[in-house]
Design a protein around this nucleic acid. Structure first.
Length: 578
RNA sequence: GGUCCUGUAGAGCAGUUUGGAGUGCUCGCCACCCUGUCAAGGUGGAGGUCGCGGGUUCAAGUCCCGUCAGGACCGCCA
């Protein structure tokens, strides 16, 4: 090794030792006769002292240097209690510049206020910043822990193809032309869903993988075109088995990394309850402001807007003192989400109701309203009326917005739960049905025989793990009987021919004694983001892409040359339309 | 595909409402001074396609139109 010690590891007990350090010039304080350099490596940093004769004046920020010197306790009064290495310093006897650094595009040390674009373009400098490096180290540690847990539970780590064919998640595929078969294309996997089920047919019984997944959809703070899942599948299990494993996995990671003891077992909530109380299938339980169903309350109302199949309310504490402008902004907010508006009532300090809706309410409706919704004087009450799903969506979104604006969310808390019993199907808007999860998700046992007769009510044997209002994992018990699979295809309007051409290989495999099986996939980027305290999964990805799928560092994606285009067979005419 | 915010020196910003000379702040950079700092300090200096294109105007960083890039959200996506 070029060095004998790590800069961040030096303490008083090293006093008197000759050490060789190697790292980067973090900060320099040049007093002319004496020069201080903070030497940073991956472990931290130590102060190195140079005397005039050492000629350290030429050192600049982020030069890569090697320093030989003696550790000593700092002179009386010069200790820095804010630094782990603040009691000592290294008196340099020799310095060697291993490589120089050009003037920096942004400060590596100090203020965090640098645009993300600049940080990503020089990501290698960004990662030198300890906060950024720390997030990647947390991810690394979490990954080791995950492997440990899976190993302890007897899982086999099995890799599946990256160049494959479309999987049934329903997102857009990334496509790869195939030189050897012009006109045919691979798809990058949206998940290893079909392969892991094949591995169950293959008798592997316990499979897991840190799987790279690819989806060609618009990006968000928590969505990248390529992302990582911890993908799990198990044979001969029930929902409780998959859930127990999930709690072991997530529990270990949270305990070891943030010192949080996961409640065991985690609370479970049905999808129906989550929608009714929180207007979301991934409720954030760190604050209250639950939705209040008012359909019954307004069943006899003469106010047209509330003559609807569903009326619900959510309370904004202190919202009664909002200005007209602020209240109008809520209307704009609701319209931007595709709603007609957001009806509201203001509860005055004397308990009287104000706002444009109030005068449409009968005396008795007004009288009991505040108590019914749990509003106090000075609060605002927002209402949504219409189709239950749409109105609840709006109220759920309003609830989150209220939580943010009013500072109701306790950021120090962790709120974990399972959301179970999601519907199997939802209307596709064209008179048909689509799978909420994917077409291989089984029905709950009580729906096994008749889900096809009640597609709107049938419940899936599926479960999502939710943390702080974010879905961090989701899975299901799969269908393993051809007969049941056929009934699902019938509901979805997938013909035998279509099923055969899309996943014939899976159906073929299922002819040969498939075991009952189920699994789950965890969004590893999101989990690591939560552990690292980040706001975006980009914080825990070494080289992420921008919202347009651009990598500011490499410049990818790039145009291809005519030669590449020809060779790749991009423009080949397909022999027959797929 | 849509809505909103942002774009001014290497970095972070102010200036845009009400048009009047690239006007300013903090940091960094360069030179010099400085023996105990740790966000060191001091003196001096360099550094600008105000994202890009067009328009209005005697005059545009500022107003209008278009466009590009980044971010947040909706649609989309588990």
């Amino acid at each position: 090794m070029i060095r004998t010690h790590e800069a961040g590891s030096l303490r008083k007990e090293h006093a008197g030792e000759q050490v060789t350090l190697a790292g980067w010039v973090a900060r320099r304080r040049d007093h002319g006769g004496v020069v201080f350099i903070d030497l940073r490596d991956a472990s931290g940093s130590s102060q190195v002292v140079f005397r005039e004769e050492d000629d350290a004046h030429g050192l600049r920020a982020e030069y890569c240097v090697k320093v030989v010197g003696e550790v000593r306790v700092r002179p009386e009064g010069n200790e820095n209690p804010d630094l782990p290495t603040g009691e000592i310093e290294v008196v340099a006897s020799r310095v060697e510049v291993l490589s120089e650094a050009a003037p920096l595009p942004f400060p590596v040390e100090g203020a965090a206020g640098v645009s993300e674009e600049a940080r990503l373009r020089h990501r290698y400098l960004d990662i030198r910043r300890p906060q950024v490096a720390q997030a990647l180290r947390i991810r690394s540690k979490a990954t080791y822990l995950a492997h440990e847990v899976m190993h302890e539970h007897g899982f086999n780590y099995i890799e599946t193809p990256t160049l494959t064919r479309s999987t049934p998640e329903g997102a857009r595929d990334f496509l790869v032309p195939v030189r050897l078969q012009p006109g045919s294309w691979y798809a990058l996997p949206q998940s290893p869903q079909l392969f892991k089920q094949l591995l169950m047919v293959a008798g592997m019984e316990r499979y897991y993988q840190l799987a790279r997944c690819f989806r060609d959809e618009d990006l968000r703070a928590d969505r990248q075109p390529e992302f990582t899942q911890i993908d799990v599948e198990m044979s001969f299990v029930d929902q409780d088995d998959v859930i127990a494993l999930g709690e072991a996995l997530v529990g270990r990671v949270w305990k070891e990394i943030v010192g949080y003891e996961l409640p065991s077992p985690l609370p479970r909530m049905t999808y129906a309850e989550a929608m009714a109380r929180y207007g979301s299938d991934k409720p954030d339980l760190r604050f209250g402001q639950e939705l209040v169903e008012m359909t019954e309350y307004f069943s006899g109302t003469s106010f047209r807007v509330f003559q609807a199949p569903y009326v619900g309310a959510v309370v904004m504490p202190g919202g009664g003192s909002q200005t007209r402008r602020e209240l109008d902004a809520w209307q704009e907010w609701a319209r931007s989400r595709g709603a007609k508006g957001l009806a509201y009532v203001l509860v005055g300090e004397d308990g009287t109701l104000g706002g444009p809706v109030a005068k449409n309410l009968s005396e008795s409706e007004s009288a009991g309203l505040a108590e019914k919704v749990g509003a106090a004087p000075g609060d605002a009450v927002f209402f949504a009326a219409g189709k239950p799903s749409e109105a609840r969506d709006l109220l759920g979104a309003a609830r989150l917005e209220i939580g943010r604006r009013c500072g109701l969310i306790d950021e120090s808390q962790w709120s974990f739960l399972w959301v179970v019993d999601a519907p199997m199907f939802e209307e596709d808007g064209e008179g048909g049905w689509t799978a909420v999860h994917h077409p291989f998700t089984g029905p709950k046992p009580e729906w096994a025989d008749n889900f096809q007769d009640h597609p709107a009510e049938a419940l899936a044997y599926a479960y999502d793990m939710v943390c702080n209002g974010m879905e961090i994992g989701g899975g299901s018990i799969r269908i393993h009987r051809a007969e049941m699979q056929q009934r699902v295809f019938d509901v979805l309007g997938i013909s035998k021919e279509e099923a055969e051409s899309k996943f014939g290989f899976l159906l073929e495999a299922f002819k040969y004694g498939p075991p009952p099986h189920g699994g789950i996939a965890y969004g590893w980027d999101r989990i690591c983001m939560l552990l690292a305290g980040g706001d975006s999964i980009r914080d825990v990805i070494a080289f992420p892409k921008t919202a347009s799928g651009f990598d500011p560092l490499t410049g990818a994606p790039t145009p291809i040359t005519g030669e590449q285009r020809k060779e790749a067979g991009v423009d080949a005419k397909p022999k027959s339309e797929a």
